[in-house]
Design a protein around this nucleic acid. Structure first.
Lengths: 219, 219
DNA sequence: CTCACTAATCTTGTATACAAGATTTTCTTG
DNA sequence: CAAGAAAATCTTGTATACAAGATTAGTGAG
């Protein structure tokens, strides 16, 4: 399984970082030459990529890297906002000291990479690490993993959104505020903050105009 | 694609109705004879079933119908409970008359099949129809479909749970109450009701003892 | 009888030849 | 030159032969 998993991770990474742009054709024969493997295991990989919406399969025509679907982004942020509001409420009444320390440590590392150029990957990874840690500390890592399976569109949207407007500092500060609210158990302020943190700017027309080449035309 | 989709629906139905019991071996060659098709397209189907946790693939050993994982059931009910609480809050401020009529109609049909023997399938389908309609009316059908992709364990748990204890009447009444709270916009009472509706009895040891043969032993 | 080893027979995993639809190119015809 | 038809060449879809690991049956030695 290792070789197929490796190919899949490679392709996922290239799609998520937009190194493979939406609309790019992924030919089975081309990929089989690139990875020096036959078409059969490659088809397994492409099938799974399609199931997770990384690609679309057009029968007898080809496999194409999917365009970013803003409807999916909106739905996922609604889901996460609702869920994380509840998770933080749970955490505020049961968060252990070790957990708090872990979250603080992630925030420290995240602050360090804000200044550096070309390190947006590290920042985004630490952003995920922060949210994931919240899920795990609340006993909800299962749900984090579930969401990841439908996260292609959101992850690409987030990357483009951050490239455009340099708001890394603001995001970091919101994480910081979130932790403070958690410590002081001011649960009533957490909901609105999470909502702003995840769903702000979702309907920005500015974004749609700037990156229309990457976007799904559907609706 | 039609033929493969048909095979997949058949197998999914047999697994969900427990006609294919957890632990049953699904051999590629046996299935290829049954459906009169070669192994290649059948592998596609089995791959997708495994991805949705209907089966587990043990490399070089075989495909096996998955055991019911109660951890998954607990996580999914937490997700649904949280999400539907929010969705009903949204609905209470924007529900149209046509939508209300639709929900009432589903409830009427559901009441009709309560008495009849051997019609638990119809009852469960209408149960899904009711909840799904809520998602759709709130513009969240996308999330309903997302949850369905990870719903095998919950759906089988629900079926067994209802076979054991005849609580169809109670479930129907909760739906009825939900509608009334919605109409009268008593949003503060909806949360606890949804929680009870979806998550009651989740940790019942009675269930685990009665159906241990169907359950995953993990943890 | 029991245990260990071997061989046969399962299983899925991979490579490849061929089928069939979609596209593009080329050539013929006006 | 233009337009349309035909053919070559793409694409994925399917069937099948073979590879390789896992299990099981059987056989022989003690």
């Amino acid at each position: 399984m290792s070789i197929k998993a490796e190919i899949m991770n490679t392709l996922k990474h290239e799609i998520l970082t937009l190194s493979l742009k939406p609309g790019t054709i992924l030919s089975e024969t081309a990929l089989s030459e690139r990875f020096q493997i036959s078409r059969t295991p490659l088809r397994d990989v492409l099938k799974q990529l399609a199931l997770e919406s990384y690609t679309d399969i057009y029968p007898k025509k080809g496999n194409m890297v999917s365009y970013i679907d803003l409807e999916s982004v909106e739905q996922i942020t609604y889901l996460r906002s609702t869920l994380e509001k509840e998770i933080l409420k749970d955490l505020s009444s049961q968060l252990l000291l070790t957990g708090l320390h872990e979250l603080k440590e992630i925030l420290e590392r995240q602050k360090e990479v804000i200044g550096k150029e070309n390190d947006i990957d590290s920042f985004l990874n630490l952003d995920d690490a922060f949210h994931r840690a919240m899920y795990r500390l609340a006993g909800r890592e299962f749900l984090w993993n579930l969401i990841q399976q439908s996260n292609v569109h959101y992850l690409r949207y987030r990357r483009l959104h951050m490239l455009k407007t340099e708001k890394l500092e603001g995001i970091w500060k919101e994480h910081q505020t979130l932790l403070e609210l958690l410590v002081h158990k001011e649960t009533e302020k957490i909901g609105p903050l999470i909502h702003h943190h995840l769903r702000e700017d979702i309907h920005s027309l500015d974004f749609q105009e700037n990156f229309s080449e990457y976007l799904s035309k559907g609706v």
